[in-house]
Design a protein around this nucleic acid. Structure first.
Length: 423
RNA sequence: GUGGGAUUAGCUCAGUUGGUUAGAGUGCCAGAUUGUGGCUCUGGAGGUCGUGGGUUCGAUUCCCAUAUCCCACCCCA
């Protein structure tokens, strides 16, 4: 019989690493709530059609990376490849359009893409994200970026650069696409195979091509940012201005196009050097046409998704201080028949909020002490017949090697106090 | 989807120019005269040498296939 292993592209997240995850999640939820974002939880799978309409039929994600299956009722379902489409569906289905605007939501999800594995890329991966509905102005765009900026700062993440761009609206993009095609037409033969097929379907994506054959041609191509309609230009200028007001550094990168079809106007990425070639830690942008695309009234929206694996990898690279598992406070060694009393007191300590353990293995005193040392308990004590009759224990400080004789009540107060300081 | 590297104990890795019962370090369990940990010493458990074929008297070692992991391309978080 062959061994069963975790499916390709998935991985177990184990202690002590889980402590860093909890920290990242906690700080994210906390920063979001300060900005007025509330958490939404959505299904892990949706009707396949949602992603076809929402993410876009022409994208790589939908064309070849989705985990799609038929359920027993013959309905086509897909494990979510990202979060935005599901949030938009929920926004509409639950009538959130009638909530006071803007509607601010955040989420913490797993997502699934059937891709070849690489550093910082998994088939099941985690994203934190935010979505804002109902506000069209560039202030929201800047607010979202500032939320990320604050989050990164609170985690101690540095050396991450923000790149921004605008990819216009349907009006200016149509004009630009024509202009781009006019420019590319004479070079068409020199472009790579995929770009030749992109020429008719989605010429904008050619800008993003990394093929050596395409790069020199693309470099001279007209940029969408230089061909925005007046409205989009004003919006982009406003976005830049608000970032400057908030003293957030950014670089304009005319090459950012984003891989999902729903983006309009503002697009941005936070990029790092250390996460292999998967340098994008966080990507986002405005999607003013998406709500309508999924079947609602025209509603402006904007959001981002943050790759948690990549974020944690980057934090580790930068050796940012991340908390480890909480250190247990006290080990209660049980001696002989006093085991019952030891367990009883351990349970009481836990009800007082103290991280306490006692023997479960029926081990010798020496072995119990060894365990307490290895698990780095701060305090230990031995409970035997002597302690029970005297009503006093010797509380041992494992750091200082010192012991002090105290009553059970004094020990409880001391431990509670100690753990309050530890958090 | 294309290409390169890897796979031996829970973990990090030796090794056999093809030859009986496959090693180290670390970790785990136990003990060093039965009321006290981190050092030391002793012992123990733990591997069908990724899986399936082939060559051979004999394969963990050579060949082929396959799986998984790592890395790059593409794309993305």
């Amino acid at each position: 019989m062959s061994k069963i292993s975790a499916p390709k592209g998935t991985r177990d997240i184990l202690p002590p690493e889980t402590a860093a995850w909890q920290h990242a999640e906690k700080v994210f939820a906390d920063v979001c709530s300060r900005y007025g974002y509330q958490e939404i939880r959505i299904p892990t799978f949706e009707q396949t059609e949602l992603f076809q309409r929402g993410v876009g039929d022409t994208t790589d994600v939908v064309q070849k990376e989705m985990y799609t299956f038929d359920d027993k009722g013959g309905r086509s379902m897909t494990l979510r490849p990202e979060g935005t489409a599901g949030v938009v569906r929920s926004y509409l289905e639950n009538g959130m359009a009638s909530l006071p605007s803007p509607v601010r939501l955040f989420y913490n999800i797993t997502a699934f893409r059937y891709e070849k594995m690489q550093k910082g890329r998994y088939r099941e991966f985690h994203q934190f994200g935010c979505e804002v509905f109902g506000s069209e102005g560039p202030i929201v765009d800047a607010e979202l970026v500032s939320l990320l900026d604050l989050y990164f700062r609170e985690l101690g993440l540095k050396e991450t650069s923000l790149r921004i761009n605008s990819i216009g609206c349907p009006v200016c993009r149509a004009e630009y696409n024509q202009k781009l095609k006019d420019y590319l037409a004479p070079h068409l033969d020199a472009l790579c195979e995929t770009c030749q097929s992109r020429y008719d379907r989605n010429p904008l994506r050619i800008i993003d091509c990394k093929e050596t054959s395409c790069k020199p041609i693309v470099r001279e191509a007209p940029a969408l940012l230089d061909n925005l309609c007046p409205e989009c230009q004003t919006h982009f200028d406003g976005f830049c201005k608000h970032l400057e007001e908030l003293e957030i550094n950014y670089t304009i990168d005319k090459g950012i196009v984003r891989g999902l079809d729903y983006y309009t106007r503002t697009v941005f990425e936070f990029v790092s050097e250390h996460v292999g070639t998967q340098g994008t830690i966080c990507g986002g942008g405005r999607y003013d046409g998406l709500v309508e695309q999924v079947g609602g009234q025209p509603t402006p929206g904007i959001g981002f998704a943050l790759g948690v694996e990549r974020l944690l990898m980057e934090l580790e690279q930068q050796q940012a201080a991340m908390p480890g598992p909480a250190r247990p406070s006290i080990y209660i060694a049980a001696l002989g028949d006093a085991g019952d009393q030891a367990r009883k007191w351990t349970w009481k300590l836990r009800s007082l909020g103290i991280r306490a353990e006692t023997d479960l293995m029926g081990r010798s005193l020496k072995a119990q002490m060894k365990y307490a040392g290895k698990q780095s308990f701060r305090f230990s004590t031995v409970i035997g017949d002597d302690e029970i009759t005297a009503g006093k224990i010797r509380l041992k400080d494992m750091n200082e090697h010192s012991e002090s004789e105290v009553s059970f009540e004094q020990a409880e107060a001391l431990l509670a106090d100690h753990q309050k300081q530890q958090g």
